[in-house]
Design a protein around this nucleic acid. Structure first.
Lengths: 166, 166
DNA sequence: GAATTTACGTCAGCCTTGTTGACATTCCAA
DNA sequence: TTGGAATGTCAACAAGGCTGACGTAAATTC
């Protein structure tokens, strides 16, 4: 992949110092990345874990619990604690699977969708500003490097998004 | 900034869908980013918080506690718990400041430096593989977008690295 | 039709890492 | 000399990870 650019021209970008800069960039940028939604969440009684669940349920309506578990990479006990509060507060609802009645298909309620919008609007605003400042070429590179940094299994999840909703 | 590229050519990279992909890329990539050091840390009795402290002390020997506090963005009580175990285990040592004797200048011991090397070797290996696969142009874009995504204060910290050691 | 496996929930307990609040010490600087 | 900065520390609490064990209903397999 990335056969395009002059890859062999110079390996200066692979020095330990360059890599360290990249590592710190990830650290600091991730803080910015989560800062805006975190501010919204803390006014309610939610945390980042709730945000992640809401995000993926919104992205793939009808997602099963085990599907969500695989995406988030946590234990079911941990996820359940979060899901329970989302059910109780009426942000998420579970519908029994049509073909397999053991499954619980997760959907956002109107209220849940509203929160999702608030959270992702905030997060997208920052992302949009960063993208705009950096330009399309940089965005392309950004995505390429991030994708290469994922574990293979996560990369599958990331790339195979479209076909795993119901 | 980034006056270089054809910025006005097309704004397709700013669609909500593109932004959502970017958001998920950050999420999944960050998991990969921390996975290797995490594996090493959990064999010892340490966590990610220890890693972060060790990283920044290594980068800026002689860093003060409050300097580290600012970099990490946590409370002193939280940091202190971590620092204490690092002192006890002989990975970090504190030297009283020369000019200001209230300050405790933090340094890695040989043992601490060894752990730092192990952790950053693991993390750099993944970063290097990603960089190599993506190519220098992509790496440039990656860094540009991440930098734009940081909070201004964090960007200062990130860019002003070199001059804050003792 | 019985046995097993799968999907899910739940109880209990533990750990790390974050938080707030309060208080003490030391030392620099005005 | 006095205020404030740099630091440590005690206590208590919360979020959100984890493991282990157990239960139930539905699907699947033998």
């Amino acid at each position: 992949m990335a056969e395009t650019s002059a890859k062999g021209e110079s390996l200066l970008f692979l020095t330990d110092e360059q890599l360290r800069k990249g590592i710190e960039a990830m650290f600091f940028a991730y803080r910015g990345f989560t800062a805006d939604p975190d501010r919204i969440l803390e006014t309610m009684d939610y945390g980042r874990a709730h945000h992640r669940a809401i995000h993926f349920i919104n992205r793939s309506p009808g997602l099963t619990v085990s599907g969500l578990l695989a995406l988030l990479g946590v234990t079911k006990q941990s996820l359940n604690r979060v899901l329970r509060t989302l059910f109780e507060d009426g942000l998420v609802e579970a519908r029994v699977g049509k073909t397999d009645k053991r499954e619980r298909r997760l959907h956002l309620t109107e209220k849940g969708a509203a929160l999702e919008r608030a959270l992702s609007d905030a997060q997208r605003a920052r992302m949009r500003a960063a993208y705009r400042a950096a330009g399309p070429q940089a965005v392309q590179g950004f995505r390429t490097v991030l994708e290469a940094m994922m574990d293979p299994e996560m990369r599958r999840q990331y790339l195979g998004l479209r076909e795993e909703a119901q």
